[in-house]
Amino acid sequence: MIPLTMAKAGDAALIRKLSGRDEMRRHLTGLGFVVNGNVTVVSKTAGNLIVQVKDSRIALDKTMANRIMV
């Protein structure tokens, strides 16, 4: 398991764990981040990410991305 910040851009990865406060995890789930679901890093800028999850683009900062383990 590695945090999403370390995943390679362009490759689809399987989400294995979400950590953080309850409401934040719920929010991530609502946005489409779900364990056993796919996530693809579209681009990286200084640790901040744009990812594709389900069919939407989500922007995440480093702290948030570190809570998603793939």
Binding site: L60, D61, R67
Partner: peptide, 12 residues
Amino acid sequence: GEPSPFVMELPA
């Protein structure tokens, strides 16, 4: 405390 981490949908 830290500002809450940033997460936001980027609409097409």
